[in-house]
Design a protein around this nucleic acid. Structure first.
Lengths: 125, 125
DNA sequence: CATTTGTGATAAGATAAGTATAACAAAAGA
DNA sequence: TCTTTTGTTATACTTATCTTATCACAAATG
């Protein structure tokens, strides 16, 4: 999977990594059990420091997307807690929907947006 | 409208303000033409510095939610650019939907979440 | 045995966030 | 006219976060 860093972005590097890896899992570019590159490899690959990659992995571990195995490094391992996930999503969506509502985005259009993105993600459910 | 700051949150104070005001507009607690409190008033009210409030207002202005009138202060004035808004929402939603997809949240459940939040917002379209 | 792994400690620089204080011109009210 | 309040700008300081750098260690690999 191609991971790219935008050094001009105002988003923190470790968050860019985290988001791209989460999207990589959602788009089936990473599968349960796959190993991510070692912190040193990925750091060299994208041209950033080892500890920044490690921070991204640590966040992913804490959020239940990977488990770190001494032998295999960071391994994709989804820890599903739907109730907690829904609570978190709801909080984030509230702000986004408010923003859309102010800008005259209707509920219908928001549903269409959701479907479009799910299409991008290969129509998975 | 009640604006409250969580000093224990890891979210920046000016972003908490911004988000609450946007949600306040979406829930019709603020209407087009309404004046927000002056930077000094709101700063005193919630117990933070004047410049932090000013930063929130500046962001809201740049994002097209308010216009700053020399006489009336920060006035709710929505600048609607649907195409740009949709593009922005899509980018933010991509990460959120990916997160949900990894955690087994289906497209249907995501639609339900959207509807629930729109219900919270008083069923507006 | 040498290499690579994740992890930890520590230090340093850079950037952002938040506060504090001061000042100014414009507008409003008395 | 005088005072107050307004948004705005400037400067300075502290604090926190982000990022890099270097070193080190035990565990696993080949």
């Amino acid at each position: 999977m191609v991971i790219e860093i935008d050094f001009n972005s105002d988003e923190a590097l470790y968050l860019q990594l985290r988001n791209q890896i989460i999207m990589g899992i959602a788009t089936s570019q990473f599968h349960e059990g796959d190993s991510l590159p070692s912190v040193r490899q990925l750091a060299d690959l994208v041209g950033i420091n080892m500890h920044t990659v490690n921070k991204a992995y640590t966040v992913l571990k804490q959020e239940g997307f990977v488990k770190v195995d001494r032998r295999k490094g960071a391994v994709i391992a989804i820890d599903v807690d739907k109730l907690q996930t829904i609570a978190e999503l709801k909080k984030e969506l509230r702000v986004i929907l408010a923003k859309g509502s102010c800008k005259n985005i209707t509920r219908e259009e928001m549903h269409e947006l959701i479907d479009e993105i799910y299409e991008e993600y290969g129509g998975l459910e």
